[in-house]
Design a protein around this nucleic acid. Structure first.
Lengths: 358, 358
DNA sequence: TTAGCTTACGTAATCGTTTACGTAAACCAC
DNA sequence: GTGGTTTACGTAAACGATTACGTAAGCTAA
């Protein structure tokens, strides 16, 4: 029923002019008569003409689409990153195509295949924990499609990177526990591969060393799978050890929440017996009892920055300008709640409230 | 440095054949000599030929892109819906383009403009709370772009719809409270416009009536903004009333969590004095103390279904087959935790565990 | 042998738009 | 009036692929 979409050809025929004339009139190009222009614009409006973007994108070999691959959408940190990416992209008229790798290298690879169907102008990616090879990303760069790495980055390729200062965030969190008088501080890390985990581990260690405290292997637990269960399990182990910790820094909030439950179930007090601090400030952090201190990452802002950067690179490539890779390190902030300082020391009784340092 | 992408023309020239011959060889078309085909395929592989999707999409006027507009990405329900949509779309080779309206009608409108740049084959949308007009969606349908409504739907247009049985979920939740002996049950609703809120309200009312209980206006509170703060505030109000409720059904988990905190702060016991049940089973539900009973929506499955449905409609339109609009109603399930039945009545001491009814 | 068929190509058109280039008409100046 | 410039168009080509159609060469059967 619906007649075919009208094209420049239709307008040209009805007006008895050529197609380029119509194009010139509608695109504010020179070499067009005043009266002709008026008539074309008028008819275009009357016919409700809309340019065929397939044709335009084809002509320009440009899609105005940014691809985004992240490990998991249902994730407090990443969903905020995506939100920032989309909001910023929209400002420049770009749309965002979303894929999730589910922490699988194969799935990540498959995504790069799928979106070849709908060409993207650039890619923002947070590597899966299992990605051991980035040829698929280098391949994109070879095809002049810029790649920006975010959060989970790699040294296996040259590209712009957006990371947060995991090292300093971890250092601050550990220092916070030390400042509270804790001397035997444990650490639960995340998966071993990601740079983020390694940096947090390094920050933890350096803070201990800077304060003249020993780094004890027995107080460090590895969690490849990030979950409350794993945090609960490892905390139980730590509690039953001879050398019981008096504080713990967890590389993620879910494991910290598991740790809190383990401590409570063991009849110990938080933070008096064991203080707990997490990382990423998930929205569950202030729901748990006691509310969990955590390190807040600038998730949304990291997304914004990544978006702005990829668009800049896309345009540089179009203009045949040389690309220089940049690395942006964004700062974290410490959010202190009752799991480290106790109720009486917080100057607000509102559980929803929190205090931000620096 | 990087030479231009190679095309059929390049292969044709090097082999001294015509372009269509190359096309036929690579696409398993008839009318091609065995030996010629071999040579073409060989050279294509050697040159690392990849078809230009801009050209193909232009020719077919098809993008293999599904647009998705949802109110908010950082949201437990919606991020699961998106996850389902993407996973299912990928199976059919479709990619997903994501927009968020932030519950703003204007933003929703703007998104439909933005993605005109990168043509989508179909749209899955969950309406913003403030959308009072769906002309922008009808416009898409007029351009033969199918639209599937999900969760927050409307009667203002004809289209396929995916909803969950909010009515029955709310009815079951209320019935659950009644079965526990509660007789004075309050309700906190969400924004007034969305069909979901209205259905939950209706389910609550009908359950009361079916059990011969009165529907009291004084026990029903309206929350346009869904937040813990608002839930906390309204619960405080309810507690200070003469006619104090002994149970409450909240249309969302965040308000339920606010309610729990209000009850605890008032020195009352959960569920003995007041039992609490929420809706949507956010991941924070089992973190709160006591763990919150809730109604689980089939979020991921709703996304999967929506994806399958939109792809079906896209293909029907391509094949010029008549489209019939379908409405899928998907069932919720009751998740019972300590905020309604108390610790001793649950047959597991593991706070992470839960029991599913039906 | 010749009509008729099959095989394996090439030619031309098409999708809708943009851009490079050519040119007739109008205008101006010397 | 002739040469040069400007204005306002039209023509042609291009982006990369697909498809309808035409056809020469080779083969088969009467």
């Amino acid at each position: 029923m619906s007649k075919h979409n009208i094209s420049l050809k239709d307008i040209a025929r009805k007006l008895g002019v050529s197609i380029p004339t119509v194009s010139r009139a509608l695109n504010n190009k020179p070499d067009i008569g005043k009266e002709t222009k008026r008539k074309v614009i008028e008819l275009a409006k009357a016919l409700n003409y809309e340019p065929n973007q397939f044709a335009i994108n084809f002509k320009n070999q440009q899609s105005y689409i940014i691809g985004v691959i992240i490990p998991k959408i249902v994730h407090h940190f990443f969903s905020n990153v995506i939100s920032g990416i989309i909001t910023e992209a929209e400002k420049s008229g770009y749309s965002v195509m979303l894929f999730q790798s589910n922490e699988s290298y194969e799935s990540e690879l498959k995504s790069t295949q799928t979106f070849k169907r709908s060409m993207i102008d650039g890619l923002i990616i947070s590597l899966s924990d299992n990605t051991h090879n980035v040829d698929h990303l280098k391949n994109l760069q070879d095809h002049k499609i810029p790649v920006v790495l975010i959060d989970k980055v790699t040294d296996m390729m040259e590209a712009s990177k957006i990371v947060c200062n995991d090292y300093k965030g971890a250092y601050d969190a550990t220092q916070h526990l030390i400042s509270l008088g804790k001397r035997n501080i444990a650490h639960i890390t995340g998966a071993r591969k990601p740079t983020t985990t390694k940096e947090r581990y390094r920050g933890y260690k350096d803070a201990l060393i800077a304060n003249g405290l020993p780094v004890k292997e027995g107080l460090i637990k590895y969690c490849d799978l990030i979950s409350e269960d794993k945090g609960y399990y490892e905390m139980k182990n730590l509690i039953s050890q001879d050398d019981r910790p008096d504080g713990i820094f967890c590389a993620t909030d879910p494991t910290a929440i598991g740790a809190i439950n383990a401590i409570k179930d063991s009849g110990l007090q938080i933070p008096k017996d064991i203080a707990v601090i997490g990382f990423s400030n998930w929205n569950m952090a202030y729901i748990i009892d006691p509310p969990l201190s955590s390190v807040k990452q600038p998730d949304y802002e990291m997304g914004e920055k990544a978006s702005a950067l990829i668009i800049e690179e896309i345009q540089n490539i179009r203009n045949e300008q040389p690309i220089t890779f940049k690395t942006h390190v964004m700062e974290t902030s410490l959010i202190i709640r009752e799991s480290t300082v106790g109720k009486k020391d917080l100057n607000s009784r509102d559980v929803l409230n929190y205090k931000i340092i620096e």
